[in-house]
Design a protein around this nucleic acid. Structure first.
Lengths: 177, 177
DNA sequence: CAAGTTGGTTCGTAATCTGAACTCAGCTAT
DNA sequence: ATAGCTGAGTTCAGATTACGAACCAACTTG
């Protein structure tokens, strides 16, 4: 209730299975052949633009219906419809009927969608740090059970220390479990 | 050398001071008045689109020159020029002359820019997990000194445990140190 | 002095976005 | 029963952006 980036219970196990299949299909249709081997590029194909990200932000906030999204974001209807379609096709959201007779639908995050949260959180924290005025960040995120503030800096479990982005390096990865 | 998301030494202390001022100016000019109180929206004003993010990815990889960026991304010149201008204006990159007579410039990440890395890393890890084929992620990121793989899941220092996005909640924040 | 490199700008066209109006199904109050 | 409302879209014309190709400028190299 008090949550802005809230719990948003996800999706049933039935739909979860459907999603797995769906994802596999799309991988072969849209990616496998033309992904240039960069996961950032692949992710950007789905997280397309500003509107898409704002829709996802609202989804995390618990806004689920077409008209609520439209009002909150002041997004043109056509674009909202298009982005929702795209997110559903990619398996990030599911379209669910929440009442029949007037048929009405809502859009919910799938597990795949829920896992986009680190992207939103790091966008928010960067904005907090570098763009918020002198009164500090507009909202802060906490671990619900204990109210500890979340920070997304890098931590190494081997060295047991936080480290800066300059200590990141990369290696090819191809075969794994 | 082996690094893709590499060390990329940032910027001198002189320029660092200039940047601080620069940022303050822009905050008052462009944001303070019209930021709708959401740091995600504010961040998206700078991290505008696909191209911007790909330019940043390449910057982390150590690609610094106009033509190298253009060749690597296959981005139209006009757009590259525009995005670089915008990133410099916002203080994410600095334009530095690396030789005079032919005047030549390079674009480097500022500290503000370096701190965008969690966004890129979480985009990459989401792509790795949900979009990479059966041979697994194309590349993986490690903590350079010890080669431990990086993962960006949430961890609570009070509860001493990792937790899922569903346990995130938010509180208003306004006055702080 | 011709060609090449780097870092752009300037076009005309193509694709996208946008806001306003329209649809359609069912509900609600008179 | 009919006028009006709600939710979830679609359609369409005009404004913005994106794109690719050509051009420019300042030097360097052959």
């Amino acid at each position: 209730m008090s949550a802005t980036l809230s719990a948003t219970d996800s999706v049933t196990d039935q739909t979860r299975e459907q999603l797995q299949d769906q994802n596999l299909d799309q991988r072969s249709e849209r990616f496998e052949q033309r992904t240039p081997g960069c996961s950032i590029e692949a992710a950007l194909e789905i997280v397309r633009d500003r509107w898409t990200i704002l829709i996802l932000r609202d989804s995390f906030r618990g806004i689920r219906r077409f008209d609520d999204l439209r009002k909150d974001l002041e997004i043109p209807r056509a674009i909202l419809a298009d982005r929702l379609r795209s997110l559903v096709e990619h398996g990030v959201l599911v379209k669910r009927q929440y009442q029949q007779r007037p048929e009405r639908f809502e859009y919910r995050l799938t597990p795949m969608g829920m896992e986009l949260s680190p992207i939103l959180v790091s966008l928010m924290q960067w904005g907090d740090r570098w763009l918020s005025g002198d009164e500090g960040p507009p909202r802060l995120l906490v671990h619900e059970p204990c109210s500890t503030e979340i920070d997304m800096s890098f931590y190494c479990w081997t060295c047991e220390e936080a480290f800066s982005p300059s200590q990141i390096s990369s290696r090819p990865g191809g075969a794994e479990s």
